[in-house]
Design a protein around this nucleic acid. Structure first.
Length: 476
RNA sequence: GGCGACAUACCCAAGUGGUAAGGGAGAGCUCUGCAAAAGCUUUAUUCAGCGGUUCGAAUCCGCUUGUCGCCUCCA
């Protein structure tokens, strides 16, 4: 019996059997990064989750159309005009043009994507390549009576015209009104109304602006995702993903403007990744959601600099359920790195030895693994199944190898191939030392032998004496 | 102020009514000249605290404590 795929749907707040609008095809849109700075590993956790989802869909034989956007338009940081534009802020910080900043960080992001072994999306879509589509969407909303103009400010979406607005995120709008809210835009009809198009102030020239029926300006905070998703995937998506922090505002708004314009369900499944939390420092500061502004700004580059592999971080993410909080600490990452290393030690000897998976036993392991993964991406349990499987003495090596290869299609840890762990050559003088140690050992000069072992250890090389009399070394 | 989430061993963490997965670290054993690596064994009478429902609760309900988040932008 093949296990059935089911995912937790934020829209219904329940886990539902997965179905698609069109048989065999999955249209999936994932909110991507704003490219004004490097992505930190908290941002990246969401993309790792989405990659896991993507792999499960691929594994099931779906033709997946997977779109990830690149937000290269700077949006203001608040409703009020007082907010700073992230892109312009980035440009000012680095003395570059906004376009250069966008290009630089887009490349950096894609590099991180590859390092984490994320499958390339079917298509990357850039916000600035879709200005006409965004304008068209706003025009449709205006024609349907969902939009209103605040002169010299912009076009806004009237959330009162979309009665379901609060449902998706379970917003308590009355409670929000009671809250002290600073920087309310003059002229907004409802606190939840949001800009569809912002008109540039007459006295300031923006680095990125376009002509529109409402005046020169730039698209609002949320239209790009609706416009691009519907252009490339049609009015109804199968899955829309993002980080949990997008639920309340961004995704509520996307639903309002998309469904307002088309009259049909925008996305059948909504899936959101949990946050990466930062441990507080020893003095009790920091802690909470990882961000660029607070605490340590941890990027993949920093990980590599500290001698972790990007896949160590991927493994770290695999250890926790995608919807739960994950506590990041260097100690926890050490754990993940050691775990992956020891996992590789078990799976490396199996590379290239796969046979067919035919025995009852092997099929049972495969079923258990898939049951875990198909149950709302239960990768932590799946990892437990993998570990137990590797220890099963009744399983033939060929089948073990085949299972590892099969599971890794979903895990994406590179367990089935020899990675770039290149054969390093022991530097000449050290090789000579190793020879000398061999002689010492033959003469039972344990003192000298141990000295040399310590010396090599200091240089970063471990030594191990094999039972057959040979000696091997490995980088520590 | 309003709303919400979370709290499982040394660390990460699974488990949402049936009697605590898995990994790492640690410990013991085997192996070894000693190590390393590997293999085996082992590590929570207990799930923040208190009370309740139940034949039965980490799992449901209530209260308390603590941490974090949202009500600006955010993966």
């Amino acid at each position: 019996m093949t296990p059935q795929l089911s995912f937790y749907n934020t829209a219904s707040r329940t886990q539902e059997p997965f179905t698609t609008l069109h048989p065999g095809v999955v249209n999936m849109y994932c909110c991507g990064p704003t490219v004004y700075h490097y992505a930190h590993i908290g941002n990246l956790r969401t993309f790792v989750f989405e990659d896991l989802l993507r792999r499960v869909l691929d594994y099931n034989g779906y033709a997946v159309k997977h779109i990830v956007n690149i937000t290269d338009v700077g949006h203001l940081t608040s409703d009020a005009d007082t907010g700073e534009d992230k892109m312009e802020k980035g440009a000012a910080r680095e003395g570059k043009s906004v376009w250069e900043v966008a290009e630089f960080y887009t490349k950096a992001f894609m590099q991180d994507w590859e390092r984490l072994n994320l499958k390339p999306p079917t298509r990357w879509t850039k916000a600035t390549d879709h200005i006409p589509e965004q304008i068209a969407l706003v025009e449709t909303l205006e024609a349907k009576g969902y939009a209103y103009v605040i002169p010299e400010d912009g076009v806004y979406f009237d959330t009162a015209k979309f009665p379901r607005y609060a449902d998706f995120a379970g917003l308590d709008i009355r409670g929000m009104q009671e809250g002290a809210r600073i920087g309310v835009t003059e002229g907004k009809r409802n606190p939840t109304d949001f800009a569809l198009w912002k008109i540039s102030p007459s006295d300031a020239k923006r680095a990125m602006e376009w002509d529109s029926p409402w005046g020169r300006g730039f698209p609002g905070w949320h239209v790009e995702c609706s416009a691009m998703a519907m252009k490339h995937l049609g009015p109804t998506l199968d899955i829309h993903c993002g980080g949990s922090d997008l639920i309340r505002v961004h995704h509520s708004n996307e639903i309002a403007q998309s469904e307002g314009a088309t009259g049909v369900t925008f996305s059948r499944f909504w899936m959101h990744g949990g946050w990466l939390l930062e441990a507080p420092t020893a003095d009790g500061n920091g802690g909470g959601k990882m961000s660029k502004s607070a605490g340590e700004f941890v990027t993949v580059d920093l990980l590599l600099k500290k001698n972790y592999g990007a896949l160590d971080y991927r493994y770290f993410c695999l250890g926790a359920h995608y919807r739960s909080y994950l506590n990041f600490s260097w100690e926890a990452l050490d754990t993940a790195r050691d775990s992956l290393k020891s996992l590789r030690r078990k799976t490396d000897p199996l590379i290239g030895r796969a046979s067919a998976i035919v025995s009852e036993n092997a099929l049972g392991w495969q079923r258990r693994f898939l049951e875990a993964v198909y149950d709302d991406l239960g990768f932590p349990q799946a990892l437990a199944v993998l570990n137990q499987m590797l220890k099963d003495p009744d399983l033939l090596e060929g089948e073990k190898a085949a299972l590892v290869r099969d599971f890794d299609r979903l895990l994406g840890l590179g367990l089935a191939e020899k990675t770039e762990r290149e054969e390093k050559v022991l530097p000449g003088p050290l090789a000579a030392l190793l020879e000398e140690r061999k002689d010492a050992r033959n003469n039972k000069d344990w003192k000298r032998s141990d000295e040399i072992r310590d010396l090599l250890k200091g240089k970063g090389f471990g030594v191990k004496d094999n039972p057959d009399g040979t000696t091997s070394w490995f980088p520590l």
